[in-house]
Every structure is written in C-alpha cells, then in structure tokens.
Amino acid sequence: MHMNDKIPLIREKALWMRRTAFAMVHRAQLGHPGGDFSAIDILATLYFGVMRFDPKRPDWPDRDRFVMSKGHATGALYTALCAAGYFPEDWLATYMQPRSLLNGHPNRNYLPGIETNTGPLGHGFPVATGIAIAGQLAGAGYRTFVLTGDGEQQEGSNWEAAMVAGHRRLSNLTLIIDRNRLQQGAGTEETSGLDPLDKRYDAFGFDVTEVDGHDPAALLAVLGAAPGSKPRCVIANTTKGKGVSFMENVASWHHGVPNDAQFEQAMKELV
C-alpha cells in the first residue's frame, strides 16, 4: 500500500479514538483528555501507517516497539491498542474502574501490546533506549518508537538517555516529542524553558525534524522513512485538546473531565 493510501484510514481511526477516549473519561470522571487529544494523531499514524506488529502475537520478536512515556495519556494508548486489535472494545467501558485492566497508567502485566509500565515521567525514553540497544546488539530489524510529553523533557533522565542514544548512534530509535507547549497548570516555557529544543537534540547527535503533529501525511513521511545513521528526534507540534473548541490550548484540560453538557458538545464537534 502506498503511504498516501493509508491517510483515510489513519484519519478514521483518529476520530474514533478521540470520540471513544472522551467517552471513557466522561464515564469514569477521571483521565487526561488534553494530552490524549494532542497525541492521538501520532498514535493513529504509528499503529495504522508505520509500525509492524501482530496483535495475535504480542511478543512477536520482530515487532516494532512503542513506548508511551507520557503514561498518563492512557485514553490515547488504550484506544489505539483496541483499534489495532489487541483486546475487545467492550473492555474500554471498564476504564479506571476498580480492578480494571485499564487503569490510570499502562501496565504490561495487565494488557497485551504494552512494552513497559510508564507513568512517572522521564522513564519511558530511557527504557526505549535500552530496547533499542538490545536490538542493535542482536542485529534485529525492529524499530523502537517512544512518545514523550514536552513538559516531560524537564526530567533529567531524558537527557541521560539522549546522551547514550547519540553516542551509540541508535538509528533504530525514534523519539517523538508531543510539543503542545502546555503541562499541568502552565505553559512549558513559563515553567522551565525548552527552546531551542531542536538544537539541543541536534547537539546530542540526533537527526531532528519538526512536523505538524496533526497532519497524517507529514507524520507518515517522517515516521515511515527508512532509518538513517543516527537516532531520530521528531518534534511534533500539536495542540492540547485538539478537536474540541473548549479544550484547545487550555491548561486545565490536562486532567479536566467533562460534565454532560461538555460531553454532548464535544461529540457534536468530533465528526
């Protein structure tokens, strides 16, 4: 299939993921919908346009690996895994319920398709770097993709991982930064400035590309490209709460939950 032929499917899945994730948060009255919605187009592109995987064989050795380092964005991750066929859709109705397999942070012991437990920020990128090192040492053909938040970049463990990845020239590793410029309570640049983020990763030995994180064609072109000779950093410029007017670029929707009227309005907008 030509890359452009995948775009309608990616858009269809992303819309379903937004509607479904918001319904999950509304039902549970818990979650992080703002960051879910900034990341969903990225996940839809990875799962339905880029990565090699087999949901019937979650431990297939040659699968591409994905690590959701911004582990609070489970609405995005769980809907992606469900849409990709890892578990039945009716499981989503249990989101955040007592003893549910779909709890607030992803747990590899509960659900297939999760490579590592995440939640405490700054852990996923180092683990993904280790996964990529293992692939490099084994001469394996899989690629490792990891999605971090931009506020998460303030964790020092990311920069230790970047130093190692650049030194080892992990061409099988792609770091994607969800650059929505908002974190819990405030903007990233007000909290601890990250710019110039591109030059920082370039200095650590990464091939750096900036892309519209809501454009499947642009994401496909970057994420689907053959690996080069360095690890790749993709700065995906996104909008927190993308697709719902009252959520977009509003910091309080980092962990806000909708009332019934807001839910109905969002469903009218997400078409």
Rank of each mutant, 00 (worst) to 15 (best):
G241E: 00
A44S: 10
I7F: 01
I7A: 03
K230F: 09
A165F: 02
T144D: 06
R11V: 03
L9Q: 14
D90S: 13
D64T: 09
L92R: 03
F66A: 10
G49K: 04
Q153S: 10
L197E: 04
P227H: 08
G193N: 11
S245T: 14
K199N: 09
K240T: 05
Q29G: 02
P216H: 03
R65I: 15
R63T: 07
E189I: 07
S38C: 05
M3P: 00
L111N: 06
D215H: 08
E210N: 09
H255A: 14
Y95C: 01
G119N: 02
G35P: 03
H254W: 09
M1C: 00
W16L: 13
G139E: 09
L15R: 15
A218C: 02
F37M: 13
L101I: 08
V25P: 04
L43W: 12
A225W: 03
N4R: 13
G85W: 12
T20R: 14
Q184E: 14
I131Y: 14
K242C: 09
K13T: 11
A23C: 11
D260M: 03
A225Q: 07
E115R: 11
V25E: 10
A186N: 02
R63I: 06
V208N: 04
L147V: 06
A236H: 04
F246M: 02
T116W: 03
A128E: 05
Q262G: 04
P8W: 08
T188R: 03
A83Q: 13
Q262P: 08
D59C: 05
Y78H: 10
Y86L: 04
M96Y: 10
M51P: 06
Q262H: 10
H123E: 14
V244M: 03
P258Q: 04
W253R: 04
E115D: 14
R108D: 11
R63Q: 09
P61N: 08
I131M: 15
A221L: 04
T79H: 07
E155T: 09
P8V: 11
N259D: 15
V127A: 15
T20L: 06
I131N: 11
T209I: 15
R143Q: 12
G224E: 00
P58T: 06
C82P: 05
W159Q: 08
Q183H: 09
A138K: 15
D207F: 01
R57K: 15
L175P: 00
A203G: 15
S171N: 12
G49W: 02
D215V: 05
D150M: 09
A39N: 00
E264L: 13
W91Y: 13
A203I: 05
